[in-house]
Amino acid sequence: MHDVNYHHHHELNQHEFLGCCKDCRRSLEIIKPHIMAFARKIKEYDDAALRALHPDDLYRLFLILDDLAHMDAGEHLAGLILDEPEIKETLPMIRGYYDTFFSIHEVHLAEKLLQTSAPWATLKSFPLYPRYEALVKNQIELNKLKRGSRLAFIGCGPVPSSIILLNHLAGIRAVGLDISRDSVALSRQVVRRLGLEKEIEIVHGDETLLTEMDWDTILVAAMAMPKKRIFGNLRRIMQEKGKTDARVFYRTYTGMRAILHAPVTDDEIEGFTIVGRFFPMGRVNNTVVVAKLEE
Rank of each mutant, 00 (worst) to 15 (best):
K32W: 02
E295R: 14
N5T: 06
F126I: 04
L63A: 03
D99W: 14
G242H: 00
I35G: 05
D66Q: 12
L128C: 06
L82Q: 05
E75L: 13
L12Q: 04
I64Q: 09
T100H: 13
G74D: 13
R277M: 11
F231M: 00
Y97G: 08
C24S: 09
A134S: 13
A73C: 11
P127N: 02
F279H: 14
M256K: 01
L165D: 04
I30C: 06
L145R: 07
L196Y: 08
R131W: 03
W120H: 07
L114K: 09
L166E: 03
N5F: 12
D57H: 15
L209A: 08
R95W: 10
F101H: 14
Q239P: 01
V284E: 10
M238L: 05
G205C: 08
P130F: 11
Q115N: 14
Q14F: 14
L82G: 01
Y253N: 01
N286A: 09
L177T: 08
I202L: 10
N143E: 11
D216I: 01
L109G: 01
I81F: 07
L80D: 05
L166G: 06
I30Q: 04
S187W: 05
S27M: 11
H9I: 02
Q239N: 04
L145G: 00
I200D: 06
K228L: 12
I269F: 03
L135Q: 09
T265D: 04
A224L: 03
K241M: 00
R51K: 15
L260K: 12
A185N: 12
H105K: 15
D83P: 02
F62D: 07
Y253L: 12
T287Y: 02
E44P: 02
L135V: 10
V190F: 04
E11K: 13
L53E: 06
I163Y: 05
A121R: 13
D214S: 14
V159Y: 03
Q14C: 08
D67P: 07
N138Y: 13
A258Q: 01
A246V: 01
D56H: 11
N285K: 07
V288T: 15
I163E: 01
R95S: 08
F38I: 06
P130C: 11
H7S: 14
W215E: 02
L177W: 05
S161M: 12
S103W: 10
K144A: 13
H15N: 14
L209P: 09
S103G: 07
A78L: 01
I154D: 01
N5L: 11
E133T: 10
E133W: 04
D214H: 08
N167Y: 12
A185S: 14
R131A: 07
A118I: 09
A48C: 05
K228G: 02
K292C: 06
A118T: 12
F272K: 01
P33L: 05
L80V: 14
D57Y: 15
D214G: 08
R25N: 09
A224Q: 03
P119F: 09
V4K: 06
D67H: 14
S187R: 04
K32F: 05
K32Y: 01
E16C: 11
R229C: 09
R188E: 11
N286V: 04
Q239F: 01
T100P: 00
H168P: 00
E75F: 11
L109A: 10
M256Y: 01
M93I: 07
P263S: 04
P85D: 05
A110V: 10
K137F: 03
I31W: 02
L234M: 02
F249N: 03
A73Y: 07
